[in-house]
C-alpha cells in the first residue's frame, strides 16, 4: 500500500519536475514547481516528519513561490522565442550526470545508508517530531541556528536598503 502510494507520488514529482523546465509559459513552470514541492511534503509525511511537511508547504510552496509568481505577473513575462543552445544542454547533462553519480555514491557507500544517531522511528513517535526538532535546534545545534538567523537578518536589512531610495 505504502509502496504503491510512494510510486504514485514519485511519478507526479518527476513529471511535474520535468514540466518545470519544458513549459514555455513561466506561470505554468512555477505551478509545476509548486506541485513538486507538494510531493516533497508528502515524502516528509511518509517519513513521520509532519512538521517538516507543513514548513515545506508554508515556506516553499506558500511564501517563496508566491513571490516568484508575483514577479512573473508584475513583469508580465510572456512566451518568448525559444532559442536552442546546444552547449548549454551539454553542460546541463554533465552537471546532471555528476549529481546523479554523487547522490548514488552517498546513498550506497556512505554512512547515510544506515540509520545513525540516538533517534530512531519509535523514539521520534514517542516524543514527537516537532518537540525533538525544537529541542535539538536550541541545544545541540544552537550555533548554526543563530548563524542562520543572523544571515536572514542581514538579508532583510539588505532588502530594506535596496528598496528604500533615501535612508
Amino acid at each position: 500500500m505504502e509502496t504503491l502510494f510512494f510510486a504514485i507520488i514519485t511519478l507526479v514529482a518527476v513529471v511535474s519536475a520535468i514540466l518545470v523546465i519544458t513549459c514555455k509559459n513561466p506561470i505554468n513552470s512555477a505551478l509545476s514547481l509548486i506541485l513538486t514541492f507538494f510531493c516533497l511534503a508528502t515524502y516528509y509525511v511518509m517519513l513521520d516528519a509532519p512538521f517538516m511537511a507543513a514548513v515545506q508547504v508554508m515556506v516553499y510552496a506558500g511564501a517563496i513561490m508566491v513571490l516568484i509568481v508575483f514577479v512573473i505577473m508584475l513583469l508580465n513575462v510572456r512566451v518568448d522565442a525559444h532559442k536552442k543552445q546546444t552547449h548549454k544542454v551539454a553542460l546541463g547533462c554533465i552537471i546532471g550526470l555528476f549529481t546523479l553519480i554523487n547522490t548514488a555514491f552517498l546513498i550506497f557507500k556512505s554512512r547515510a545508508a544506515m540509520p545513525m544517531g540516538p533517534y530512531n522511528g519509535s523514539i521520534i513517535k514517542q516524543i514527537g517530531h516537532t518537540e525533538l526538532i525544537g529541542k535539538e535546534m536550541f541545544t545541540t545545534f544552537l550555533l548554526p541556528f543563530e548563524i542562520t538567523s543572523i544571515l536572514l537578518l542581514v538579508a532583510i536589512i539588505g532588502a530594506v536598503i535596496l528598496a528604500k531610495k533615501k535612508i
Partner: peptide
C-alpha cells in the same frame, strides 16, 4: 501549521 500552510496555498 496545516492551516497556515493551506492558507498560504
Amino acid at each position: 501549521l496545516f492551516f497556515l500552510a493551506l492558507s498560504s496555498i
